[in-house]
């Protein structure tokens, strides 16, 4: 299966965006090689600003650019950016409702051997709780390119989650990407799997494997975690009456949390969450970490079977 690093797709998409929209400016906090914004810098040096290792400052500067009519894409490692500058994002971006795009890099287990300090599994939660904020994690490189364009077209605060490691391409060029509109990737009857990011590819593998055992799984690509596409989710869950969520992120307040909140309030059905369980990562390769944290196709299959057994 073809693989693309989300960050590479992001970097290339920014260059195209820079060409069609001259209001776009790119800010980086000394990680332009990792974030691949150096490609934008090389194409449009006058619209690229390195603010150094100053996450609070870069967010505020982004908000200033937005006041001045620009569309700033603000880049740094997700944990440092959202952790150090959460209050700046809360007030200068979200409360002020400024048109700032917050781009979190090296998400989840991306930085593998760098270990716990560099493995953000909490960023979706941190952004989800903020009013006016939108949260997006594309499934693959192809969807990443579409998300970048959509982000610039949407006026308002948004958070985009960008991974470093090449991941399988599971969407197609012709698939429609609309912010806030979940895509059904595979139709099924017995259980709904809702996934984002790299976990969508694992969800699809799980569905394929389960089909051989006669289990019919519906797979939803929830690239927009906020605002939730309640209609698509509810329609599927009313049919299957069982949900497995999958994310490269803590289940507390992330995609699993969001789905649990929705269904707990409006349509309680059994849920199993695949994701990080209230812990930090370790130093390890990307694959070792996914294994350690249970972010696997096998784990998704096991969760689906648990729900089948409850029926």
């Amino acid at each position: 299966m073809e693989q693309i690093a989300p960050r590479e797709a992001y970097g290339k998409a920014l260059i195209k965006l820079g060409d069609i929209n001259e209001k776009v400016v790119v800010l980086d906090a000394d990680v332009s090689k990792a974030s691949m914004t150096y490609m934008f810098r090389d194409s449009y040096p006058e619209r690229f600003f390195n603010l150094g290792i100053s996450e609070s400052d870069i967010v505020g500067t982004g908000a200033g650019f937005a006041i001045g009519g620009k569309i700033p894409f603000v880049n740094a490692y997700a944990n440092f950016l959202l952790g150090n500058a959460w209050e700046q994002i809360r007030i200068s971006v979200c409360y002020a409702n400024q048109n700032v795009k917050i781009i979190g890099h090296n998400i989840g287990a991306s930085s593998g051997k760098d270990g716990p300090t560099h493995l953000p599994f909490e960023d979706i939660s941190l952004m989800r709780v903020l009013p006016n904020m939108m949260v997006i994690e594309p499934a693959d490189g192809i969807e990443m390119a579409k998300a970048v364009v959509a982000l610039a077209e949407h006026k308002g605060p948004a958070y985009l989650r960008v991974g470093r490691v090449p991941t399988p391409v599971v969407t197609k060029g012709e698939d429609v990407f609309e912010i806030g509109k979940a895509n059904i990737c595979r139709e099924g009857e017995d259980v709904t799997i809702i996934a984002c990011g790299v976990m969508l590819s694992k969800a699809l593998s799980a569905a394929e494997g389960l089909s051989k055992e006669g289990i019919s799984v519906e797979v939803i690509n929830l690239h927009t975690i906020k605002p939730l596409d309640k209609d698509t989710i509810m329609k599927s869950v009313r049919k299957t009456k069982g949900v497995v969520t999958a994310e490269e992120h803590t289940v507390i307040g992330g995609l699993g949390g969001a789905i649990s909140e929705l269904l707990g309030e409006s349509y309680p059905v059994p849920i199993r969450m695949v994701g990080v369980r209230d812990r930090f990562g370790l130093c390890g390769t990307y694959d070792e970490l996914h294994q350690l944290l249970g972010l696997t196709t096998e784990n998704i299959i096991g969760c689906v079977k648990e729900l089948i057994n409850l029926k």
């Binding site: 505020g60 200033g64 650019f65 006041i67």
Partner: peptide
Amino acid sequence: SIANGVALA
């Protein structure tokens, strides 16, 4: 920081 951003713009 806000002032810097708008000044850069």
